[in-house]
Design a protein around this nucleic acid. Structure first.
Lengths: 221, 221
DNA sequence: GAGGCTAATGTCAGCGTCTGACAATTGACA
DNA sequence: TGTCAATTGTCAGACGCTGACATTAGCCTC
């Protein structure tokens, strides 16, 4: 283990051991099978046994890869979120907090493919997003995951601005409001007809532009 | 059934039938027992069998009162949320949207007792709130419930302003941002030492006052 | 106030998620 | 090749939750 990791970190892993590659293949096969089944017949109507059987492993093995049935449903979300967070960290230091968040999310939605295409086809990822939004138990987990991400975002924003996240409420507040806007955009997208990522991106940008007008003291019609 | 309801609706029910009273007693006994156990030994470490046994009913009966184990954990939250929503509906028509939301939430936190004291002691409700925030599965459900409430709030705000909630993004956006602020305040409260409701109320007011400064283009230190 | 009606409850069997324990298999590495 | 350790399979069982059916108990009429 120690030898492998040392080499792997130095360059792109020349070739991880057979054992490791096999594990990766099993894992991604489980993700693909799960998402395929979830999107085809629904999350609740899919059993873990079905997923395991589709990949020809035992149920017990499934639970060694994923702590629970929900976790596999969020495997590609996880990648996408990492992508987004990385985008935020790469933003120029001078940029204002909200502008940085805006830039990062539009960036991430712009090339979601990079983050997940080696795992599943992007189109499946989008279909799964809809399943998450329309399945109560998954939606709940999705919101909790979002809240966890927001905590990380707040810390990054505080770092950029040279503030103490526990002393100044603004980083957390900004991120919480930002998260609310993103959620509204995402929800409206899943309710609409257009599946394309571009639509989601545009919808997000549109809603972010509305933050100012929304907080105006008096709304004009 | 028909006769009873007609009478009950006209005045305050003079005395609901024995059957109905018994049901209410069983239900509230289940809530009390559940919250007592959840706060004492944790949500995950409490089984439905334990709760049922404490009230001397069968497990099956528990599931006739509550769709699942989570639902009983949110019984008092449900009351509190109703209280809050009612407070919003009672706000003067002239008030600006954000001011109305602010007034309603401070109002609701101010006299939480009214909403729940016939069910459980308010202090138990507060302890339960902490359990919810610190139990991942409950936190997830809590956030979903919040999102559902936000949808209702958005519709009420739109109604007040004479807008179509599906055509104008501002009601949903405002409520989403507002919800984010409330959550930050609530989370900080559970992490702190002070249990009192007053502290929560003050913390909420403080964070709401910070919305403007947070969205300023440049943050001053 | 006896008896029929129906709502509430108990009992039982069973499915699905998830976990611990132990045995069997299979890469890794000397 | 043989030893070691990681991965997997098998099995038993706890817990959440549901359908079906039997039992109990409030309600209402005569």
């Amino acid at each position: 283990m120690t030898t492998d990791e040392a080499v792997a970190d130095a360059t792109t892993p020349p070739r991880a051991g057979l054992r490791e590659r096999k594990k990766q293949r099993t894992r991604s096969a489980l993700v693909r099978a799960a998402l395929e089944l979830f999107t085809r017949q629904g999350y609740e109507r899919t059993t873990v046994d079905e997923i395991a059987e589709a990949v020809e492993v035992s149920q017990r093995t499934f639970f060694r890869y994923f702590a629970n049935k929900e976790e596999v449903a969020f495997a590609t979300q996880e990648s996408a979120e990492c992508h987004f967070f990385t985008a935020l960290c790469g933003r120029p230091a001078g940029e204002a907090p909200l502008a940085a968040l805006r830039g990062a999310v539009l960036d991430a939605w712009g090339n979601i493919g990079e983050a997940i295409e080696q795992l599943v086809p992007p189109e499946l990822h989008m279909r799964m997003y809809r399943v998450i939004e329309s399945t109560p138990s998954l939606l709940a987990v999705h919101l909790r995951r979002t809240a966890e991400m927001e905590e990380r975002l707040a810390r990054e924003i505080a770092r950029r601005e040279g503030l103490d996240v526990d002393a100044d409420p603004r980083p957390r507040l900004l991120v919480a409001m930002f998260g609310g806007v993103i959620r509204v955009a995402g929800k409206l997208w899943t309710e609409g007809e257009e599946d394309s990522v571009v639509t989601l991106r545009d919808l997000t940008a549109f809603h972010l532009d509305y933050v100012g007008p929304t907080l105006a003291e008096k709304w004009d019609k």
